[in-house]
Amino acid sequence: MDAVTASLEVSGLAFAYPDGHQALFGVDFAIARGERVALLGPNGAGKTTLVLHLNGILTGGTGSVRVAGLPVGRQHMAEIRRRVGIVFQDPDDQLFMPTVREDVAFGPAAAGLKGPELEERVDRALERVGMAEFKDRPPHHLSFGQRRRVAVATVLAMEPEILVLDEPSSNLDPASRRELADILRSLEVTVLMVTHDLPYALELCPRSLILSEGVIAADGPTGELLSDEELMRAHRLELPFGFDPRSVTMGA
């Protein structure tokens, strides 16, 4: 696969839920390999709905999604799901197995790995998020921050092309938040981070997209978008009190 192929390409995506509520009204964007991009938007903008389209969990609307050139659709579903690693907002949804180890092993084992190879993959993924010593603990005995890290590990274990994080910083205390940022920065994968935590986006993602009312309303360098007060106000995005994006030095 050539490096020119975008990791993710979304075009004309529209979708309504069964109760008639339409969440997406034609979304277009592309993300190149290795980029870290933030998808910003107020509550109810359709962010999570969009995420669920990225690996074909929601279908039935119009438009298309391509992952590394592969269209998301019935015939490549297994491959798509291996390549798009989604970390969901609530780690309780993500961690469904009885122990951390089994949870992390779930993805690779479903892909056919077993024995020492599987074990090695699990160890490496847990190592990368600093959770190696929690291998045999049940997920519900971990703190929220630890569960979120294990959730990231479950996805890393599948060695995805693109890592999609839904509100990664929600419910984390400042220390866990920073630890997670360090982990994300150390990974060499394409990252799409869905959030309304603007400082976090600025800290981690050079580029941002603003999703508002079901369409992409803006696409550009994170610092610039956050400094555009009019744009921010128009899409119900507010910086925390006292935070000035212009005064922050970007650590990319």
């Binding site: 969990i57 799901r81 989604i86 949804d93 479903a110």
Partner: peptide, 8 residues
């Protein structure tokens, strides 16, 4: 979803 996302 979390399961199918990991290849279930």
């Amino acid at each position: 979803l979390a399961m199918v996302s990991r290849g279930y």
